[in-house]
Design a protein around this nucleic acid. Sequence first.
RNA 1: GGGCGCAUAGCUCAGUUGGUCUAGAGCGUCUGGUUUACACCCAGUAGGUCGGGGGUUCGACUCCCUCUGCGCCCACCA
Length: 884
Amino acid sequence: MLPKAYDPSGTEDRIYKMWEDSGAFKPSGDESKETFTISMPPPNATGQLHLGHASRMTVEDVFTRFARMGGKEALWVPGTDHAAIATENVVIRKLQKEGMKSPREELGREKLIEKIKEFVGESQATIRGQVRKMGSSCDWSRERYTMGDSLNRCVNEVFCKMFADDLIYRGHRIVNWDPKLQTNVSDDEVEWKDMTDPFYTFQYGPFQIATVRPETKFGDKYVVVHPDDKRYAEYKHGDTFDCEWINGSITATVIKDEAVDPEVGTGAMTITPWHSVVDNEIADRHGLDKEQIIDFDGNLLPIAGEFEGMKIANAREKIVEKLDKKGLLVKTDEKYTHTVATNSRGGGSIEPQIKLQWFIDVNREAVDWKGKKMSLKQVMQDTVKSGDIKIIPERFEKVYFHWIDNLRDWCISRQIWWGHQIPVYYKGAEEFAGVKPPEGDGWSQDPDTLDTWFSSSLWTWSTLVDPKLTEDFSLTLKEILEKSPDYQKFHPTQVLETAYDILFFWVARMILMTTYVIGEVPFEKVYLSGLIRQRDGKKMSKSNPEGCIDPIDMIEKYGTDALRLSMVMGTGAGNDLKLYEEKIAGYRNFVNKLWNASRFVLMQCEEAGVDPHAVASCTPKSLADKAVVSALQDLVDDVSESLEKYRLSEVGERLYTFTWDYYCDWYLELSKGEANPEVLIHVLRTIVTLLHPYCPFVTEELWESIKPKDSGMLISEPWPESDAKLKDQSSQDDLQITIDVISAIRSLRADQGLEPAKKVSIIVYSKHAKLLESQRVHIESMTRLENLTIDSAAQKHEDVASAFLNAAEVHMPLEGLIDKDKELAKLQKDRDQLEGFIKGINAKLGNKKFVENAKEEVVALEREKLESAEGKLKKVLERLESLS
RNA sequence: GGGCGCAUAGCUCAGUUGGUCUAGAGCGUCUGGUUUACACCCAGUAGGUCGGGGGUUCGACUCCCUCUGCGCCCACCA
């Protein structure tokens, strides 16, 4: 016998181990099966799993389990990400906390990397444990790491291929430099923050110019105005003038450029091409000089004269003071708000700099795609436009296209040590790109490493490559792919699940890289989840501990199944989810309910002397049996259909309601009168199976007690299918009778002066009717029944239930009980509605476009609706006639 | 500046090609309940002009327009 309450902590680890040891997570190797692959978005190996990860794992596990039970060859590939900048930063800070002042200098490259590897190893172990805690049915034998050797080979191969195709180039470009972390970051990693700073207006010869950054103004010798600005019409492009400036007199040149907005400030500005993207573009257009003012540590260079070597923040005030003394400060606006670029990867503020860096050219038409030469941008657009890749929800396709439109060349080099080192080697003026270092002495490798997203962007296929083959340098990448069975079998993957906040970072770049490298899409569908938020709608973060939830705490307290349910319910694709403890507790209750329902069913079996494992088929006897079995068939159909469409929340809710309200509160209650163990077991088995992808642990545990004789683990069970015969068994008339019986009993009791049998009659009305929408019964007809005859008088609830269960033969007169005027008005309204409805559907079916474009089932459904409406209308008309 | 999303009961949300939704769930409120599972339970009660306004339609929470309030993304900021 099962214990009284379900205890997740004593169950989950044991079950997970059983699954893993049995090999249930691995594809079966059956060649006839359709494959279903998901790549796990690799969590950063920088510490702990958070709720966002837990949500990823849950959704992906639901997909995987559903596919596996649905008879597919399901593979979910797990892994971790080396998270270049973030990880290096975490380790450096950790070392600093331990007392090391500047770990990079003190340790040097090799030793720091060793330290990082150590840390990553620990993190990975933690993460592996936590991914298991979530019940993830991923194939651990295929686990990969973005910094693994086989992935490194793929990264180098791809780099060299792009280099050979001139899609990768090295050049002096303006980049987002972070002086604190001493590296640049990509445009997408820049976070703009609102700041309030003083806004100074200075006299600059005959012009007035405004700035928040006087410390960049040393090199300014151009003043730019809009060509159509009438205020400055007297000056021509190229005019020069002398003026007094910070460190003495300079000669300035007038530049006319449309980038200037005449509405802002005075409509005139000076430019700093070396330290501003826009200024740099202006300078490029007119061939102007560029000078570096600030060094890579954020200090002023000799051009600043007396201010040389000062930190910019310190210099600012002093420069303003000096200009004020010279009488050049016109005014100061203290409350000016603007946005400042910061490094979202835990760094400081961004100081644009011109640097020699590696870039991927997104505009060069050098990619073979569908028989044409296209640019990386064009291919990215085509995959989604053509429908090769579908994004769910669809609205994100627009966001995706917009991002591509604004995309500039992707800067892939970083000045940190943790990452894939750029496979380019130099010797004097010679340059060599290769997966292996060149022969001979004197070569040194480019010290920079690649953007972490470079390796992630190869994730779907590089994880499927056979690692052994990557050790053989005589093979080309193409040959490696051809000889890798997993890649051949499991790529492209079916669905990529991730949160929408990394659509650009990761999803778009996987599309970019995979289409280019192997000529196929990385995945067929992208399912974008929302973010998990606190109850107040804010992002979960450790800085706000009150609303921040740790998944592991919740698992300990409520069990993994409850946590999983709480993250799947009440949200759709692309929508954020507010999560809080009460919600998780609510689903813990549900899991416990399921547990107790099973206990009850097993008790019933024991009482009836039925071995639950021996139950092979089910024969519904009473009306209630028929009703529950019939409803179960609808449930199976609805759940399967909605899961195919990724409507996880809808499915969850449907299962929840069916299990609790219908099966437990209605059918199990009735079974207390007279039970049909076969039906009880059959329905329970189906429910437990359908719930398995959502709450795998409790269902697997229950399965052990209720499974048929020859079955194995639930994880490997086939998905239920509906039985059309069972579905038809229960007709609307049958249910009408059941309701009437209850009403009859109620009236009878009233006649005999007994208390009304309130409880049961209400159960039947409110729950039963609600769940079987098509078989709804109006309460009016129940309350007005009179003059009834029935064989057995009900004295107790048990009798009511028993009468109900045996009620197939009872019929009731319904006539003479109605308020005529009300009924008439209602009938007339019904008639008008139905006539309109029929007209509407006829119009739809008469529409050629609709009939041609809609699926057959949809058209059939419309026809069905029409028929039923016509039938109803007929009844309404008859009734109207008989009344009047 | 460009784009996207949200607004439904006190709170968190379902409601997917407009039609048994004159709107549902969970939690919370209040009332009653230990009958053969479950108090992590059962039954019931109160609570909503589906953000405001207009339009299309026989019919609108659902489609269109508009206004208001929140949130997000992108671009830019001298």
